[in-house]
Every structure is written in structure tokens, then in C-alpha cells.
């Protein structure tokens, strides 16, 4: 996907630039943007490392595990038919916690494990089970409560209050997650009736 988007932006930009006579700008901007990406990463290094460091502390003292256990009632609600003692519950919970805390890259491997287990529970096949659908929709409804990366970007671009978006972002994320959960539950009910 990224291949096409990237090529599209470059080819379209240069073509339009040629027609609108902006080639000088295009040329300067290309080089400036590359420089800018590096200075952005320097800011990011600080903010991201601080955050993942704090999450390391949370993991080391068992707080992360505690949070995962707190997720269990939510998982029972979302996946009422999953076997209670199955390892998949733990995978789903830690995937959600990692997403909530803004550790997206840590969420993916454990999320894929969860998906594998869900597939073996559903008995294989190439069609998604209801549980798989719920898991993925909730995952994609954006669980992230603390958008660390957005805060880092904002501070790099001179925001006076980089973290001022936190409360609105939490509310907006709640809206999207509630909509995703509601939709999944409705679809599950409809499937039961059939």
C-alpha cells in the first residue's frame, strides 16, 4: 500500500509542479523536507524514549500485568463465547493494553498471536469468525489514550501547549471505540439469530 501512496505523491507532485511552474519550489522543498525529518526524529527520540522508559518501569513492577488482569471483565463482555481459561484472553488483553498506552509496535506481535488462537478456536477456514471481527474492529477503533507521537510532533512544530489535545483526544477515541464496540455487538446478535 505504502508503495503506491509514496509513488503517487512523488509522481503527481512533480507532474503538477511542471504544469504550474513550481519546479524551483519542488526542488528546494525535497531537500528541506529530508533535513526536517531528521530534526523531527531528534525530538521524537526524547519524547518516545521517555514514554517507553516509563512503560518499562510499569512493566518491571507488575503494574502492566495488573492492568491486563483488569481488562478481563471487558474481554468477557466483548467475547462472551470464548473459553475462560484459554491463553487467548491474555493475548487479547495485552494487545489492548499496549494499544491503550500508545505502544503500537508492541501490540502487533501479541495481537497476531491472539488472531492465531482465535482462528484455531473457530476451527480454521478462510472466513473470519465473529470473535475475530470483534477483536479487529475494536483494535482499529483506535484504543490509544495517550497519543505520545502526536504530542512529540506538536512540540517539534512549535506548539505552545503540545499536550493540550489530550483530553479532547481521549473523548474522541472513546467515541470511536464505543461505536466500534456497539457495531460488533449488534453484528454478533444478528449472527446469533440466523
Amino acid at each position: 500500500m505504502l508503495n503506491y501512496i509514496w509513488a503517487f505523491m512523488i509522481l503527481l507532485g512533480i507532474t503538477i509542479g511542471a504544469f504550474t511552474g513550481n519546479m524551483g519550489n519542488v526542488s528546494t522543498e525535497t531537500l528541506n523536507s529530508a533535513k526536517e525529518a531528521v530534526s523531527l526524529c531528534v525530538t521524537m527520540l526524547g519524547v518516545m524514549s521517555l514514554w517507553t522508559g516509563l512503560m518499562g518501569v510499569a512493566r518491571g513492577c507488575g503494574l502492566m500485568e495488573k492492568l491486563t488482569r483488569l481488562m478481563m471483565p471487558v474481554i468477557r463482555l466483548l467475547f462472551p463465547t470464548l473459553p475462560k481459561e484459554h491463553i487467548v484472553n491474555e493475548y487479547i488483553a495485552s494487545n489492548m493494553i499496549a494499544n491503550i498506552l500508545g505502544l503500537g509496535w508492541a501490540a502487533t506481535p501479541v495481537g497476531i498471536n491472539a488472531m492465531k488462537e482465535l482462528k484455531s478456536i473457530s476451527g480454521g477456514g478462510t472466513a473470519a469468525s465473529v470473535d475475530m471481527c470483534t477483536f479487529l474492529i475494536v483494535n482499529m477503533s483506535s484504543l490509544q489514550l495517550i497519543p505520545v507521537n502526536i504530542i512529540a510532533y506538536r512540540s517539534q512544530y512549535g506548539s505552545v501547549t503540545p499536550s493540550s489535545i489530550l483530553a479532547p483526544a481521549i473523548i474522541a477515541t472513546t467515541c470511536s471505540t464505543l461505536a466500534g464496540v456497539a457495531f460488533s455487538m449488534i453484528m454478533r446478535k444478528r449472527g446469533d439469530k440466523r
Binding site: 509514496w6 505523491m9 512523488i10 503527481l12 507532485g13 512533480i14 507532474t15 503538477i16 509542479g17 504550474t20 513550481n22 519550489n25 519542488v26 528546494t28 522543498e29 525535497t30 528541506n32 523536507s33 529530508a34 526536517e36 525529518a37 531528521v38 523531527l40 526524529c41 521524537m44 527520540l45 518516545m48 524514549s49 521517555l50 514514554w51 517507553t52 522508559g53 516509563l54 512503560m55 518499562g56 518501569v57 512493566r59 509496535w105
Partner: peptide, 30 residues
């Protein structure tokens, strides 16, 4: 933990360079 974040950020740097350049081209072209 901080080391992890450090590595992840360094890892996305080449991606950001490529993408910011592409967006820069698109914007400068109008």
C-alpha cells in the same frame, strides 16, 4: 524501556525522511 523507544524511533527515521520528502514535493507543486 527507553532503549526500546530509542530503537523504534531510529527505525522509523528512514520512513519519515522518504515520506516528508514526498509530501514536500506534493505541497510545493501546488
Amino acid at each position: 524501556g527507553a532503549k526500546e523507544g530509542f530503537e523504534v524511533t531510529l527505525g522509523i527515521m528512514p520512513t519519515l525522511i522518504g515520506l516528508l520528502a514526498a509530501v514536500g514535493i506534493l505541497r510545493a507543486s501546488g
